[in-house]
């Protein structure tokens, strides 16, 4: 029952080290986190569960992050998406915002930075729901 009230976060990054770093930090902050390193598996999970927040990398094999976030926003427009990328360009940043992402964060970043953005996205989601 308590779990239902917690913000549900899906993380998709093909670098396991990124998921390994983010998951415990976000769980410690009180979030429920699922991590994926393959976009197709993450996409399948989206068909089973609605997440409040999605944190996704952009450059990945198979379905890339841009296609993934497009699908997330199409499926559940209320889900806030945060893009994290190791290959930032003006075009990818602009395109991400045009697709409705909440924030665009270039790697490297400190855990504090992503936690701040997650809290803001969570507040934004709550505000738009109320």
């Amino acid at each position: 029952m308590e779990m239902d009230n917690k913000t549900q976060i899906l993380i998709l990054d093909d670098e396991p080290i990124v998921c390994k770093r983010l998951k415990p930090a976000l769980e410690k902050a009180g979030y429920v986190v699922e991590t994926f390193t393959r976009s197709m598996e993450a996409m399948h999970r989206l068909t089973e569960k609605t997440f409040d927040l999605v944190i996704t990398d952009l450059k990945m094999e198979g379905l890339d992050g841009m296609a993934f976030l497009t699908e997330v926003k199409k499926r559940t427009p209320g889900t806030e998406v945060i893009v994290i990328t190791g290959f930032a360009t003006m075009e990818t940043a602009r395109e991400s915002y045009q697709k409705g992402v909440f924030d665009f964060i270039a790697k490297p970043f400190k855990l504090g930075e992503i936690l701040d953005v997650v809290r803001k996205a969570e507040a934004n989601r709550r505000q738009s729901q109320s």
């Binding site: 080290i17 990124v18 770093r21 190791g86 290959f87 930032a88 360009t89 270039a106 790697k107 490297p108």
Partner: peptide, 14 residues
């Protein structure tokens, strides 16, 4: 470090 690899990634991309 992972951070240093990511920094090189960004510099090479930009």
């Amino acid at each position: 470090s992972q951070e240093s690899l990511e920094m090189i990634n960004q510099m090479a991309t930009i």
